[in-house]
């Protein structure tokens, strides 16, 4: 092993995790409430989902590029990378929140109202517990994608394991490319497994 490679690997891996965690945290904080909102306002649903859809179809490198000239959120560096990752993560969480809430049985919703639950109680006691699984699936899908996409963040100075990959590509160094790609893949697998486990645990009743 090349000297210093291991230390740098550790550092970039932690950096990668930090980058993805921060992006996912904001994505969840935006997408879940927004999903709840548009599950109630059907007229907003189509435009919001379409917008999130468009965001996701933009090639990731291009989106990173588009953001650079934008003031405040743009520029070269970490902030831009996180913003782009958040935008990419929105759609699966948004969609699964809406699907989860809308799949609550109409009779259950109606009886909840008939028992005198307030709209807030309907949300927290019935709709969210019954859609927690669907929402978590959305978060898991988004996380796995984000871990992969985050390797491209290095292109605009976002850091993370992509640093190895880009350096490896530039110097035609396969070892270096693998040193970036393999840990990223392992992180994605670990996230998939870990979040899948939480999904099972948190589902309102195991089926």
């Amino acid at each position: 092993m090349r000297p210093g490679l291991f230390d740098e690997l550790l550092e970039l891996t932690l950096d990668h995790i930090w980058l993805c965690s921060l992006a996912m945290l904001f994505a969840v904080l935006i997408a879940v409430p927004l999903g709840i909102l548009i599950s109630r306002r059907v007229s907003l649903q189509a435009p919001v989902l379409a917008f999130a859809n468009v965001l996701q179809t933009i090639p990731s490198l291009a989106l990173f590029g588009f953001l650079i000239p934008i003031p405040v959120i743009g520029g070269i560096g970490r902030r831009t990378a996180i913003v782009a990752l958040i935008l990419f993560a929105l759609l699966p969480i948004l969609r699964n929140t809406v699907v989860g809430i809308q799949s609550v049985d109409a009779a259950v919703r109606e009886s909840a109202l008939a028992m005198g639950l307030s709209p807030w109680q309907l949300l927290t006691m019935v709709e969210l517990p019954l859609s927690v699984r669907s929402i978590l699936t959305g978060i898991r899908i988004a996380t796995v994608t984000t871990i992969g996409t985050a390797t491209i963040a290095a292109a605009i100075g976002g850091g993370g394991l992509g640093v190895f990959i880009f350096r490896g590509v530039a110097s035609v160094d396969t070892t270096l490319i693998l040193a970036g790609a393999v840990p990223a893949a392992l992180l994605a697998l670990a996230a998939d497994w870990g979040l899948g486990w939480i999904e099972q645990k948190l589902s309102p009743f195991s089926s």
Partner: peptide, 29 residues
Amino acid sequence: PVRLRRSIGYVIQDVGLFPHYTVQRNVGL
């Protein structure tokens, strides 16, 4: 509406029990 409904007992045709609550918690809702 919340006050009105709390003072009315309603047995809905499709029952509509909360699937994530036990029977006793449903009854005690």
